[in-house]
Design a protein around this nucleic acid. Structure first.
Lengths: 242, 242
DNA sequence: TCAAAAGTGTTCCATCTACACCCATGT
DNA sequence: ACATGGGTGTAGATGGAACACTTTTGA
C-alpha cells in the first residue's frame, strides 16, 4: 500500500448493489478479529485534496476493477458515537494513524453488473462477498444503518428513474430478468403481461436477434437497453412506470 | 458568543424555504466586505461531539427562533477547492481559528412557515433576508451549487411526499394558497377544478368553519392539515398526486 | 352594479387491472 | 409425451384532462 496522505476526518462508504437473477445483493468485506468474522461495507478514508466522489470511485475500482459505475451519494453519517462497539474501536486503533479523531462518513450507492466484477484484493478488504440485501446480517460500526438507508433510497430513486435499474443487468437480458429485478425492488410480484406491455412501450428497449439457448423450454428473446434512444426520447421527468 | 469548541473540519449549511403566498423564497444572510454585499446560506461549524442534525437544528433555531421544523439532509459538499474566491478566503481567514483546513459541509433543506419566523440576531449573520428561489443571486463559496441542488431535491421529494408541502403553509389556509404553492413547486399552472377534486379526496384536508373575511370577493373556506388522519389513512407509498 | 376570486360537474380519452391459453424447447 | 417457462389480447374500471358559468363579497 502506497503511503498516501489521508484526511483522518472524512471517509466514504459504499453500498454496492448487484443482481444475480434472483435477488439483490450488496458487497460486504470480511475481516477476522478475535476468531470472529466481522462484516462491513467497503470504504476508506478520503485522501488529502481528494474529491469525495473520487474517493468513492477509487474504493469501487480497487474492489471490483470497474470504472464508470452508477454512483450516487445518498447520506452522510456523522454521529459522534458511530464507533462504539469495543471490537470496532480496537480495530480502528490498530489500523488508523489518528484513531481518536471523530470521523464522518459520506455514504454512496453504487450499481454494478455482477458478471463484470473481478474481485480484487483491496487494501481495506481481506475477503469480499455478495450478501442478500433482505437477509439480516450484523455489520460493523453504523453500517447496518447505512446499508438500510441506502437500500431505501435506492428503491425510492428507482421509482422515479427506472432507467438506472439497467445498470444492474447484463448487456443483454430477457424480459423475465428485467421483471424479476423490478419485483425484487418493489418487493411484490407483478403481472407478466402488463409488465411487458408497459416495458415494450419504451423504445429504448430493443430486441436483439439472439435468443436464449440450452434451456429446456421456449427460449426467450434477448433485449438490450439503448441509452441513446433513451436520451433522445425522454425528457427526464415525463415517464413514470409505477 | 459563548466559547464553544468547534470541529474545524465539518460544517452544516441550511437551505431554508418559505412561501409568501406568491413565490418560494430562501433565507440568505448578508455580510458586508470591502463595501460589497456578500450573500450566503446560513451555516456554522459543527461543535465537538455535536451530532450533525443537531448542528443544523441549532443554526435554524438561532436564526428563526423556531424548533421542530421539517429538516432533511440532502447532500454533502466536500470539494477540496470549494472555497476559492479571494473574498471568501479573506473572510474565512478573519473569522476561523483554523482557516487553512479543508472543511466539508453537510447541506440541509428546511421548510418553515414564514409568519412564524422571528428573525433573531445570530452569531453568524449580520442581516437576514428572504430571497426568491427563482431569482438569480450570486452567493459565497459553493452556495449557489448547494442552493440549486437543495431546490431540485426538494421538488423531487415533494412529488413523492406532497405531505411535506404543508410545512410551508400557515395552520389554516385556503385551497387557492395550496394550489399556488404546488404551482410554485412544479413550475407550471394547474387546473383549478382538477386540483380541488384530487386534493379533497384526501381526508386529511379538513374544512374549518371559518372563512376568509375582509376580501372584496367571495370569501374562501379555510382548511387545515390533519396529521393524525394522514397517518391513519395512508401507508406512505400508496398515494401519488402527480 | 361592478370587479374579483371562490366554487362547482360532465364528457372524453388514456391507462391500469385482471385474467387463460398456446408455443418452443430439452429431456 | 411431458415438463418448463416464454409469449400473447381483450374487456371493464379507473383516473386524468379539458372546459364555462354561478356565487359571494367589498367597493
Amino acid at each position: 500500500m502506497a503511503n498516501f496522505h489521508y484526511n483522518p476526518h472524512i471517509s466514504v462508504d459504499c453500498v454496492i448493489f448487484g443482481f444475480d437473477d434472483e435477488r439483490i445483493n450488496i458487497l460486504l468485506i470480511k475481516r477476522k478479529q478475535e476468531g470472529k468474522n466481522i462484516y462491513a461495507l467497503p470504504g476508506d478514508l478520503v485522501r488529502k485534496g481528494e474529491d469525495l466522489d473520487h474517493a468513492a470511485t477509487r474504493v469501487l475500482f480497487e474492489l471490483t476493477n470497474l470504472q464508470n459505475l452508477y454512483l450516487e451519494q445518498f447520506k452522510t453519517f456523522g454521529s459522534p458515537d458511530r464507533i462504539n462497539d469495543p471490537l470496532d474501536i480496537e480495530w480502528v486503533n490498530s489500523i488508523r494513524e489518528h484513531p481518536e479523531v471523530r470521523v464522518i462518513t459520506i455514504a454512496y450507492n453504487s450499481l454494478v453488473k455482477v458478471e463484470d466484477v473481478e474481485f480484487a484484493p483491496a487494501s481495506f478488504a481481506e475477503e469480499v462477498l455478495w450478501h442478500p440485501i433482505d437477509k439480516p446480517q450484523k455489520l460493523a460500526f453504523d453500517h447496518n444503518d447505512i446499508a438500510n438507508t441506502g437500500w431505501a433510497m435506492l428503491r425510492e430513486k428507482i421509482k422515479r428513474e427506472p432507467l438506472i435499474a439497467f445498470s444492474l443487468l447484463p448487456e443483454k437480458f430477457t424480459l423475465r430478468q428485467l421483471q424479476t429485478l423490478y419485483e425484487a425492488i418493489v418487493g411484490s410480484s407483478l403481472d407478466k403481461r402488463n409488465f411487458r406491455k408497459r416495458m415494450l412501450r419504451n423504445k429504448f428497449l430493443v430486441a436483439l436477434e439472439e435468443k436464449q439457448s440450452g434451456v429446456s423450454h421456449k427460449p426467450a428473446q434477448y433485449f438490450k437497453f439503448d441509452e441513446a434512444i433513451y436520451k433522445e426520447d425522454f425528457a427526464k421527468d415525463q415517464w413514470f412506470l409505477f
